[in-house]
Simulated scan of single mutants.
Amino acid sequence: MPTSIEAIVSAYVRLKNRQALEHMRELRRQLLKPLQSKSSIDTAQSRDFILEDIRVIEGGLEQLRSPPHG
């Protein structure tokens, strides 16, 4: 079963909505910045979730860059 972010990215890929994917990626990058600079609390799990979201979003963007198969 796909995760929520995978389902959202898949929908945007089907709709060829590159702008929405780029916006989602930028928002997550903004969320990641303060987490990377915190040393007084353990932010590893939050960082991991955001990095996974970014990975999935970038996979969707790559699908939009690639020519369709078949």
Rank of each mutant, 00 (worst) to 15 (best):
F49R: 11
E62D: 11
L51T: 12
I50K: 12
L61C: 12
M24V: 02
Q36N: 11
H23M: 11
S4F: 04
T3C: 02
K38G: 00
Y12E: 10
E52I: 00
V56R: 08
R65S: 02
Q36E: 15
S4Q: 14
E22L: 15
L15V: 06
G70K: 11
H23Q: 15
E22V: 12
L15I: 09
V9R: 12
I54T: 12
Q63T: 08
M1A: 06
S10R: 15
P2I: 13
Q63S: 09
I57K: 09
S40H: 13
R47A: 02
Y12P: 00
P34S: 14
Q45S: 10
L21Y: 02
E52V: 00
S40R: 13
S37R: 14
L35F: 03
S46W: 04
I50Y: 07
R65Y: 00
A11M: 04
A44N: 10
Q19W: 01
L21A: 02
D53F: 02
Q30M: 09
K33D: 13
Q36Y: 08
P68S: 09
R18F: 00
I41P: 01
L21F: 00
I57T: 04
V13N: 13
N17R: 12
E52W: 07
L51D: 09
A44Q: 14
I57G: 04
I50V: 14
H69R: 12
M1V: 09
S40P: 00
G59N: 10
L61V: 12
R29S: 13
L51S: 09
P67M: 10
I41F: 07
A44L: 07
G70L: 06
L27H: 11
